[in-house]
């Protein structure tokens, strides 16, 4: 049960987590060295109090996270079937950064604007590896605006115990690591990730997504899109296992 007094209600907005939700977010963050993301679930009468961290199917790397569009749609349908309104499950976008900076990247900010910018309000929250966090509240009613808000744990409500086994199962079921870099002896051709029929109404997804897989390292890098190249170079810098294997220095 909630145990908030009036003075708390009148304070400036802050994103609050139940201990269970926060523990689950950190558990998922620490499952691997990759990013992970999801949506914050809230109660109808307390929309900035996250009581659960809900995962959707996603592809992750050490420097990126990308939700599966169909899984997001399934998530919406399931949440509505459970009796929740969109403002309870689709307004708080949570994800982690493997490094120690919770500051949003250009990609984070672009997604926040493009995806959540038409909602009456929304929150982007990022938790870094060292536990530091960032949250930005955007509202589009009245004059509109956005502000950075604090993140805190709220122990004033009853909360469930941690369930590591369940969380692990949910993580494994939803999070797929996508290798940007693979050893240069891989002979695989670029992967056809997805192809949609032209007559399907709605999103148009590029038919082909290339992954790096060639002996010709430099030419592959040259052919990458700038964004792909940035991610690749980040992954290259982070993947110490690669350097250990090769014991060589890459001059970019």
């Amino acid at each position: 049960m909630k145990n908030r007094n009036n003075s708390q209600k009148n304070q400036r907005p802050m994103l609050r987590f139940s201990p269970t939700a926060w523990a689950k977010l950190l558990f998922c963050r620490d499952m691997t060295e990759t990013e992970v993301g999801g949506f914050g679930i809230t109660q109808a009468d307390d929309l900035l109090f996250v009581t659960d961290f809900a995962l959707v199917k996603q592809k992750v790397t050490a420097v990126s996270v990308s939700f599966d569009d169909e899984s997001v749609a399934d998530f919406f349908e399931d949440q509505v079937a459970a009796g929740r309104r969109p403002e309870q499950f689709a307004r708080i976008w949570l994800h982690t950064h493997p490094g120690n900076s919770p500051e949003p990247s250009m990609t984070d900010k672009a997604t926040f604007t493009r995806v959540f910018g038409k909602c009456d309000w929304s929150v982007m929250c990022i938790v870094a590896q060292d536990g530091s966090s960032f949250a930005r509240l955007r509202f589009n009613v009245g004059p509109g605006g956005e502000t950075k808000i604090p993140v805190c744990l709220d122990y004033s409500c009853e909360f469930d115990a941690a369930n590591f086994e369940l969380w692990k199962q949910q993580y494994i079921a939803n999070v797929a690591r996508e290798e940007i870099f693979r050893p240069i002896d891989t002979k695989e051709k670029p992967v056809l990730v997805r192809q949609l029929s032209d007559d399907i109404f709605g999103e148009q997804i590029p038919a082909v997504s290339q992954q790096f897989a060639s002996e010709d390292l430099l030419s592959q890098i040259d052919r990458m899109e700038p964004f792909e190249r940035d991610i690749f170079m980040e992954e290259l810098a982070i993947r110490s296992d690669f350097w250990d294997e090769e014991s060589e220095v890459f001059y970019g």
Binding site: E35, G37, A62, V63, S64, V65, S66, F67, D69, V72, A73, F76, E77, W93, H95, H97, P98, G99, S101, E103, P104, S105, M106, T107, D108, K109, T111, R114, V115, F116, I126, G202, E203, I205, D230, I231, E234
Partner: peptide
Amino acid sequence: DRVTITPTKIEGAACRLGQQT
């Protein structure tokens, strides 16, 4: 019928060193 119109391409990325935030 149940019609859902949901956002696509929800993606995040960690900051690069030196990137403006």
